[in-house]
């Protein structure tokens, strides 16, 4: 690990200015994605701007049809939130299966969404529920937010402050975890929303994506059986030692069925 500066600003404005003004600076939230890559010298930021002291970013508010979760809310906080469990039980459930207890105690929603790891869980809920990513300078709809491998529509230095999740009629998340890392090999989020059925799949491709075929089938009949015969094309799927593209494609359908069976 290379030497770096460390800042702990007390305002969003100051944090944004620090990152904008320092070449190679990065925000530090829970550090559960950033620190591992720094330890391996795969990221060598010149400065870390800690978000720990920023006010107002660790709140969860349920407001009519929206659950607004601050960027600094830890996975554990979301998993244990009675408000989240009541409004969107699938979201609390999803958070409770991220990594392990240590990771959940440190890792944050904002960090996960900003990092956009292809095997992360939250992106499935963000896209599956059609959430909105709120930043220091604007709003990003989920449908155009995830661009590719670790790529989002955030501008350089743009700070995620919250994610607004619309409350669905019913939703569920089914995850097939990597045996070693516990990240999603395949995770499928299924939601019945006011705007229709949404199916978002994480882990399988370069970034989270929706399955139009599954959404169409489930719009006809919201049953696991409706997904019989659907195949996910393997062309753009990830392949690694844990799972080939073919196996991932198969798991997409299996996990989608399990999510449908678990809708709440």
């Amino acid at each position: 690990m290379k030497d770096f500066e460390f800042h702990r600003p007390a305002s969003i404005k100051h944090a944004v200015a620090l990152v904008a003004g320092t070449a190679g600076a990065k925000y530090l939230a829970g550090g559960q994605s950033l620190l591992p890559v720094m330890k391996l010298d795969l990221a060598e930021p010149t400065a870390l701007v800690s978000l720990a002291r920023l006010p107002g970013l660790a709140d969860i508010r349920v407001d009519g049809g929206t659950v607004a979760i601050g960027a600094l809310c830890t996975h554990d906080q979301v998993a244990r939130s009675a408000d989240v469990a009541k409004a969107i039980p699938a979201l609390a459930e999803l958070a409770s299966h991220i990594g392990d207890a240590q990771v959940r105690n440190r890792g944050t929603l904002g960090g996960s969404v900003a990092h956009a790891d292809p095997a992360a869980d939250y992106p499935a809920a963000v896209l599956g529920l059609g959430a909105t990513i709120v930043t220091d300078r604007g709003r990003h709809p989920a449908d155009t937010y995830f661009k590719g491998l670790f790529e989002t529509s955030l501008a350089d230095g743009e700070l995620v402050t919250a994610v607004h999740f619309p409350v669905p009629k019913r939703a569920a998340y089914a995850k097939f975890a990597h045996r070693a890392s516990k990240y999603a090999v395949v995770g499928v989020f299924v939601a019945e929303t006011a705007a229709g059925v949404r199916v978002a799949i994480t882990g399988a491709g370069a970034t989270v994506f929706r399955s139009a075929a599954m959404e169409a089938a489930l719009t006809t009949s919201m049953t696991p059986g409706a997904l019989d015969g659907i195949t996910v094309p393997t062309d753009d799927l990830n392949a690694d030692a844990e799972a080939s593209a073919e196996y991932r494609a198969h798991l997409c359908v299996v996990m989608a069925k399990r999510a449908v069976a678990a809708l709440r």
Binding site: H178, R179, A180, S181, A241, E242
Partner: peptide, 17 residues
């Protein structure tokens, strides 16, 4: 898991279970 050229392909806890 080594590959044919002798690279250990899963020498971290992200891969080795």
């Amino acid at each position: 898991v080594y590959d044919a050229e002798g690279q250990l392909t899963n020498g971290t806890y992200m891969g080795y279970c």
